[in-house]
């Protein structure tokens, strides 16, 4: 049985993926925190991907496949630590892959790397520029990670590397920013804007990652769920009440509250509530014949458990 190592295994998505892969793979993982009550047969190592100890884990576990999803995506941590873990951590992981005979690598990036802009066309493909840092500097580390992984893909063609860019992930277990945002009873929105958004269920994302692994997929792929809805419809469907605020008030309010640490969203996130980013998942569907199991309605309702 092939062995797969998952970084960020203790996170909501990591746990789901580990359970999904258990039947067909020998699964181990690393994370900065432990996973209490993890299934028997899965080994969890508490290490920091930036530390030497991480390479020791790879040397002893000898995985043939690595799924890299151990990123800090929230903004509660020190931004310097976040950047270091995400960017330097990824760089070192890529080096370890080269030095330790890893054959398959899946990097779970995100659809946010394209950025939200008024001139965005609908259903952007994978060749669209990664412009997120222009309006949302707080996530430039995620853009750098994506770029590192994509460059790695071309530089080491003998390692089958796959970069996945999923749309907004929702579900009961996953701690996505968009999930937290939609879970609020009153959801602030930008008055006069209602962009189309895409969502994917956490189980569908696990399935997509599993498909990429099983087929040793190589390349960069958007991963989409079932369809798209305007933001306000999504808010209504998840059971919240939209609270439209004029941008002139909302933007300064957001930056102040964010700097004081009272809200977890930097002001750059506001553009994602104004302009659409919808992605074309056709390339992934063609390569893997992936079909999401969850419809839009089930996906949206899953944030309430």
């Amino acid at each position: 049985m092939e062995k797969v190592l998952i970084t960020g295994i203790s996170g909501g998505q990591g746990r789901l993926l580990a359970r999904r892969l258990m039947a067909n793979f020998e699964v181990c993982g690393v994370d900065r925190v432990g996973w209490e009550g993890h299934p028997r047969g899965i080994r969890v190592h508490v290490v920091d991907v930036r530390k030497k100890k991480f390479e020791d884990v790879i040397r002893t576990e000898m995985p043939t496949t690595i799924v890299h999803m151990g990123f800090i995506r929230h903004f509660r941590a020190d931004p310097k630590v976040r950047h270091d873990v995400n960017v330097r951590g990824t760089k070192q992981l890529l080096d370890h892959c080269v030095n330790n005979g890893v054959q398959n690598l899946v990097v779970v990036s995100s659809g946010y790397v394209y950025g939200a802009f008024p001139e965005n066309p609908y259903f952007m493909d994978e060749d669209s520029p990664l412009s997120a840092s222009r309006s949302y500097p707080e996530i430039r580390d995620l853009v750098e990670v994506d770029t590192l992984a994509s460059a790695f893909l071309w530089r080491y063609p003998h390692i089958r590397t796959c970069v996945l860019r999923p749309v907004n992930v929702l579900g009961y277990f996953v701690h996505s920013m968009i999930g937290q945002y939609l879970r609020q009873p009153r959801v602030p929105t930008v008055m006069g804007f209602d962009p189309m958004m895409q969502f994917i269920h956490e189980d569908d994302l696990s399935e997509a990652i599993a498909k990429a692994l099983e087929q040793s997929l190589q390349g960069v792929f958007n991963v989409t769920g079932s369809g798209e809805v305007p933001l306000h419809t999504a808010i209504a469907e998840t059971g919240g009440t939209a609270w439209p605020i004029p941008e002139l008030l909302l933007r300064p309010m957001f930056s102040r509250l964010f700097r004081m640490g009272l809200i977890p969203y930097p002001p750059g996130a506001l553009d994602f509530l104004k302009f659409p980013i919808t992605l074309s998942g056709d390339r992934f569907v063609e390569a893997t014949s992936f079909r999401p199991m969850f419809g839009l309605r089930e996906t949206l309702q899953s944030v309430r458990g």
């Binding site: 209602d194 369809g227 469907e237 839009l296 309605r297």
Partner: peptide
């Protein structure tokens, strides 16, 4: 048109 009444482009 999807079940929410929109096409894919809003």
């Amino acid at each position: 048109i999807n079940p929410y009444g929109f096409d894919a482009y809003g």
